[in-house]
Every structure is written in C-alpha cells, then in structure tokens.
Amino acid sequence: MSLRTLLRHETILALVAVVLLVALAFQSAQFFTGANLLNQGRLMTEVGLVAIIMTFVIITGGIDLSVGSILGLTAILTGVFWQNLGLPLMAAAGLAIAVGTFCGFVNGFVITRFGVPPLIATLATLALYRGLAEGISQARSVRGYPDWFYVLGQGNILGVPTQLWILIAFAILASVLLAATRIGRSIYAIGANEVAAFFSGLPVNRTKIAVYTASGFAAALAGVIFVSRVSTTRSDMGTGLELDAITAVVLGGTSIYGGRGSVIGTLIGLVVIQSLKNGLSLAGIKAEGTAVLIGLMLIGAILMTTAFNKRRA
C-alpha cells in the first residue's frame, strides 16, 4: 500500500466534497448555515459510528451486514431491560450495548472458527439478530424515557449536538488506532494477504474477532443514540443501515477487496453523502433523484479506485 495512492483518492474526494458544498450553498440559501450543518451532523452520527468500524472490517477483506440488526436489537433491549426488568436506564443501556458487542463477537467467532465467509456469516446473523429483536419486542414499542436521556440524542453540549462529540472522539481514536498502531498495521496486512500475515506470525484470528466485536459495539452504541434521538424503540430500527455504512466506506476509497482504506476517507464519504441528500432536498429535488445521484457517485468512486490500481500495477 503506497501512501501516495491513498492520498490521491482522498484528496480528490475532499476536493469533490468542497466543490459540492459550494455548489449546494449556491443552490439553496438555507444549506450553508451553522444550524443546518450541525443538524446534519446529528443525523449522520449513527451511520458514522458504524461506518468508521466498517472501514476496519472491509480493510481486513471482510464485511459486516448484521450492523443494522444489531442496532435494532440493542434498541429493543435498552427498552426491555429498562421497562420490563426495571433496571435503571443507564444500566439497561450499558447492558444492551454489552449484548450488541457480544453479537459482534459471535460474528467474528463464527467467521474465524468455522471459516464461514463474512458475507454469509453476517447475512445469517442479519436475519438472526433481527428475528431476536422482533421476537423479544413482540411489536411493542417502549416509550416515555426520562428527559435526561434525550440529551444524548436531541440535546447540545457547547452548542454542538451531543452525539456529534461522540462521533468526533470515536473518529479520532479510530484514525490513530488504524494509522499508527501495531493493531492497525496488522489489519492492513491481513486484508492485503491473509496467508502471508498468518505466516508472518500475526494474530490473524484474534485481530479479526476484535474487529467484528468492535463493529458490534459501534452498532450498539449507535442503537442507544438512535433511541434517544427518536424517543422510542421499534424492532425495525436500523433496517438498511449496513448499506448506508458500506456506501460511505467504499465512496471513501476503501477497497472492497481489503488491504486499503482509511478512516478519514470514510468520514469524507459520509459528509459527501449527507450533504448531497440534504442539499439536494433543500434545492427541491425529490428523494428518488438523490438516490440516483448517490448511485452514480459510487460507481464513479469505484472506477477511480480501479483506475489508480491499474496505473500502480
């Protein structure tokens, strides 16, 4: 992996993002305002948390389709633990996050121990965890949380949405972890060539399990934030979230074959998608039109990565 190619994809994407922001600002006077941008940050936090760890997963050459279901399961469990088991809300949320993290661990365990391809394993748990969420909730929503809980999803700290602070902290931590530690380098090595990594004495299975567990944790944390933002729990929460996250990761230049990618790229990808959705909507374009544009951008991003790879080879 050469640093130069990495920088090039991200630099181009960053330029695209800047051009896009300027263009959208001209399209609609309401777009480039502090209130709107902060609000967009609030709306993209859940996908953002999941996408950051999804970057790790995809760099190892894997994929995690179960994140949306883990989000739904965590949301339901937060409500059930709190209302039906009578736990304090803080403990209920903590316990639910623990279960969500364990779900991620199960993904990693099944993938590494039984050698199931990640696509199949997490496709199975996508159904399994969603089924659990629906079975446990029995279609009943849990509502009426205490006011302090809404600070997390609806409140501000120092004028910035609470969850955006969490996303920022998470992003910094993940960037450092991936770019500047042994674990990060192991992740790249596994994605680039798993067999070589194994024979170089890297803890391949342990690293992969850790990555999927972290993915479960991120989805679970996003679940609790989501509950706080919409003030209710439903078992269908987070449906389709995995696709939004993967879109951001791939748009951000992470190779779906593994071995290449970065957290900063994913973050730029996220910003591009979110500002496109928001800006086009403000400019009066309907949701269908936006979906088409995002699809085209994604194809463009993949063509760009492929072109770079050819030149390098």
Binding site: Q30, N36, N39, V230, D236, L282, G284, A287
Partner: peptide
C-alpha cells in the same frame, strides 16, 4: 422512520 424524519427535517430547513 429514519428516512421520514430526515426528509421532514430537510423541508423545515428549506
């Protein structure tokens, strides 16, 4: 629910 909320939010801003 999430798509619907985001959509309404955007129309409020617009």
């Amino acid at each position: 629910i999430d798509d619907q909320i985001t959509l309404i939010d955007n129309y409020i801003t617009s």
